[in-house]
Design a protein around this nucleic acid. Structure first.
Lengths: 349, 349
DNA sequence: CGGATTATTTTGATCGATCTAATCATGCCT
DNA sequence: AGGCATGATTAGATCGATCAAAATAATCCG
């Protein structure tokens, strides 16, 4: 390993005491200008870097942010959290923090890990993802006054208040629906998940709201299923072969959208009349829009909603730093952040 | 935050000295059985957990493993490293280590980060990914005797010896080629990257070797391009419309394979005779096999080679722990590990 | 039984930083 | 000139663990 340079080495070279070095670095305005320069030069010359472990002992701050890395469940949507993770690592580094990973299979296991980590590495904060109804984690952390932010809103109404950053799913599906309306579609279906998941309900709501505003009744135009390509295909097929005249689909995920694309290409639907009843034979393929703009979407030319993940991560770090390095007193308390996804238009719609 | 439990608290409750508690935990065979039990009970009762920062100060070990998280370059193949990362986090946790993330845009930036991290957090080891020709990182780490493993072989012949874990790409493409031969294909093409990338050359070699062994000359049956779907499509199209009678393609990545699938579906090729010159009109579609078994492959039904990433990660941790917690003396020195990918068969071949 | 061995436990110092409080300089004002 | 507030720097203690070495207890054996 490299030679260790301690604060004492710097002090010796600069001809001052350890404490002055510490002050020059952490509390510059308490040190005389000339001395500070001398210390800086010594630091530079020796390549000194503060030892986090030692600092942590005294200050109780580890400058670590912990986050759980999830197994890529179905695979397609897995990349979302990974992109978030990359953004988080980058933003954290800029703020002088590092990201510590852990895994856990469920809420309880995660709470056990909280305990482990807090006892051993003492991360300064946690970033929680995949918030859901009846989330046990937030209450646990709050009880112990452990700082944290969630990427995802608290979906339960009874869940305690805490900092969060999220992407406005409803705004996304609303934009998608508007895009389809602008392109001349009227009867636009929705493919989502069973009610009860905060994220899913939110995304459905944006579609329903927009459709209603355009004078189309969304009733009956929506199907719910699990987040699998095959299930999405079945549900889409079911919706398309009905007599409702659905010409476009907004989906809660790229997985479902991919299924919808398969269904739309199904030869069994070829005889269906295009939505423009007028023109002869001039049929447009069913338009499909996904959610998350995953690599799969890019690969198959699926129009999809892209979440500003790097930005969301940066906001998480921003909230945490104001909470941790709290410029207490001045300034308003940190507010929650709701970002808008953007529609990435490709061939499918 | 939670109340802090220190080793002194445990000692008090167990009625022994701090050092005895430490011994009971780290050096159990030096403590009397009865005392050990008493200490364990106290630990349990108080929920004591060793403070890593304090331990690190004395021992110089942080029980942290650092790894770089890369931006998802093209997107499709990005998930590979993420899956590896998940496996690494899990295996590391089992071995009593945690994973620390960092980012860096190139070798030099990464080396700067090494310096930063080693000075501040003192990770016990690094895991390097994406090894390449002329890799600056390994030499740097070795000079400073920083323990590390690479996921990926050292491709330069002059690069110094170090621990590595890798997946045998050649064995993978060989298996894919054999699979196609078994299915009756003879003229099997290869879609890869320009020579010079270790990984790419390795994968091409497995295909060429197997084809040659089957009595087919691979010359002219291979195309090289950048790792983009569109480029793969062009290259595949070029190969398929030639007079060579190519009926199947082995690809160096799922991106290329996806391009190949698009090309194979191209109507412009429809008139091409199937490889079974005998049967009338009975044409089989061009078979395509990808590499990495990414979500995209699953989504579009692409047969692909799956890397045992969790296993690779586990091996990395295994190598590191024998290196770090070195059961020195006994046992042979840790050896490098070469794992075999498995062929996941779907509709495309 | 008594000294030598071995087993078990304890005391004191230490890792590298920061906190607290004390010391030493300096400038200002009457 | 003396007193005092303010500025700049330093000495000593401390965070929680482990290392080294000393102290104490248990065991052995002629």
């Amino acid at each position: 390993m490299a030679e260790k340079v301690t604060i004492a080495d710097v002090a010796r070279l600069a001809g001052v005491s350890r404490q002055t070095v510490s002050n020059a670095l952490n509390n510059p305005d308490v040190v005389r200008e000339e001395t500070r320069q001398r210390v800086y030069r010594a630091v530079e010359q020796l390549g000194y870097r503060v030892n986090q472990a030692a600092r942590q002992m005294r200050t109780g701050r580890s400058r670590l942010i912990a986050i759980r890395i999830e197994p890529d469940r179905d695979g397609i949507n897995g990349s979302v959290l990974d992109r978030f993770l990359h953004g988080l690592t980058e933003s954290a580094a800029q703020a002088g923090y590092r990201v510590l990973l852990y895994t856990a299979d469920d809420d309880q296991a995660e709470i056990d890990t909280f305990e482990d980590l807090l006892g051993a590495y003492e991360p300064d904060a946690f970033v929680l993802t995949s918030t859901h109804h009846g989330d046990l984690r937030t209450a646990w952390l709050q009880e112990r006054r452990v700082p944290f932010v969630t990427f995802g809103r608290p979906w339960s109404s009874d869940s305690p208040k805490h900092l969060w950053v999220d992407v406005d799913g409803a705004a996304g599906t609303a934009a998608a629906t508007r895009h389809l309306l602008d392109a001349g579609h009227r009867v636009i279906g929705f493919l989502g998940w069973p009610p009860g998941s905060g994220v899913g309900d939110d995304r459905r709501e944006g579609w329903a709201r927009t459709l209603t505003a355009a004078g189309v009744d969304p009733a009956g135009l929506s199907r719910a299923t699990s987040d699998e390509v095959a299930d999405g295909e079945k549900a889409a097929y079911d919706l398309l072969r009905s007599d409702l005249g659905v010409t476009a689909l907004v989906c809660a995920s790229d997985s479902l959208a991919l299924g919808a694309l398969h269904a739309a290409r199904s030869p069994a639907l070829a005889w269906r009349p295009g939505r423009r009843g007028s023109g002869g034979g001039m049929e447009r393929p069913v338009a499909v829009i996904g959610f998350d703009d995953t690599p799969v979407a890019k690969a198959v030319g699926l129009t999809s909603l892209s979440q500003p993940l790097a930005q969301a991560a940066a906001q998480c770090v921003a909230l945490l730093t104001t909470l941790l390095d709290g410029h207490t007193g001045s300034g308003e308390p940190p507010a929650n952040v709701l970002l808008e996804p953007t529609l990435v238009i490709r061939q499918s719609a």
